[in-house]
């Protein structure tokens, strides 16, 4: 088995991109066909290699923004640019994203390995090479012993790991996560938070993480973009300066408590306003 290096060592391209915007949103809005204005006037730059969170109450349009970035639904106003992206035959930028849904969203009839191979198979990667890369991705999330397990044989946390491995197997420039750990118990959630941070530190991809938990966003992020509802819009952009690696000790530090206080205040102000 030939393990791909980029999941274990920083990707040269990603390092080159560090600090420069990977995706740029300008005046992005989304109005659904029933007239509801879900999102309005969103300006946002996600810089290469950063770990950013979109934080806000339910219905503030944070998932809608994430899905538009992923290409699932076009914005009804404004535009999304991909500086430095390659272009396909029709001149459209290649998004190169990995997406993790709130549910594991695995195919129940396929094994963990086959599930992780899916993005590669869809891109016509030969099955031998796809299997090797999928096995390496599963190894990187600690599931090397469960390649042939069906989703029903896995716990909720393990299924989510498979989902993350599937999102990373194509080595995307940006990993988009839509409240991925919201349905898990707290202990599992903390472990997956640490594992996600470890993967991010090793591989150097960019992360945009949607959550409604102040604590989770502060623990994980370098930067928290706070959103408010009706219509969904950005109300604050908070930098979390605490150094990495972060561990359980960080959760009890004064720094962490202060950051949570600041972010909570911004969020509360947004909800009242």
């Amino acid at each position: 088995m030939t393990a791909r290096v980029s999941l274990t060592t920083p990707d040269a391209v990603a390092q080159d991109m560090a600090g420069r915007p990977v995706v740029v949103l300008r005046g992005v809005g989304k109005r659904y066909s029933n007239g509801t204005l879900a999102v309005a006037g969103v300006d946002l730059d996600i810089r290469g290699g950063e770990f950013a969170s979109l934080l806000g109450p339910s219905g503030c349009g944070k998932s809608t923004v994430l899905r538009m970035i992923a290409g699932l639904g076009e914005p009804s106003a404004g535009q999304i640019d991909w500086p430095g992206a390659t272009h396909d035959g029709r001149g459209q930028p290649v998004r190169d994203v990995g997406f993790v849904f709130q549910e594991p969203t695995l195919m129940p009839w396929a094994t963990a390995l086959q599930n992780v191979m899916l993005p590669l198979r869809l891109q016509k990667v030969p099955s031998r090479a796809a299997a090797d890369r999928a096995a390496a991705a599963l190894q990187s999330v600690g599931l090397e012993a469960f390649l042939d397990a069906y989703p029903r044989e896995l716990s909720g946390g393990m299924k989510m790991r498979v989902s993350i491995a599937r999102a990373l197997v194509t080595e995307p420039r940006i990993l988009l996560l839509d409240e991925p750990f919201a349905a898990l118990d707290e202990i599992t959630r903390h472990r997956l938070n640490d594992d996600l941070l470890a993967l991010w530190a090793r591989a150097g991809f960019t992360v945009l993480f949607v959550t409604h938990s102040v604590f989770e966003s502060v623990y994980l992020s370098q930067r928290i973009v706070v959103m408010a509802a009706r219509p969904g819009r950005i109300v604050a952009d908070v930098a979390i300066a605490a150094p990495f690696p972060r561990d359980a000790g960080f959760r009890t530090s004064v720094e962490y408590a202060d950051a949570c206080k600041v972010v909570s205040a911004r969020l509360a102000a947004a909800i009242v306003a």
Partner: peptide, 20 residues
């Protein structure tokens, strides 16, 4: 969500039919 995932990876109609 799986349909969305297939869309995300630019799956053709045929691929979505066969694999999903």
């Amino acid at each position: 969500n799986l349909v969305n995932l297939f869309q995300l990876y630019g799956a053709s109609r045929w691929q979505t039919l066969i694999y999903l």
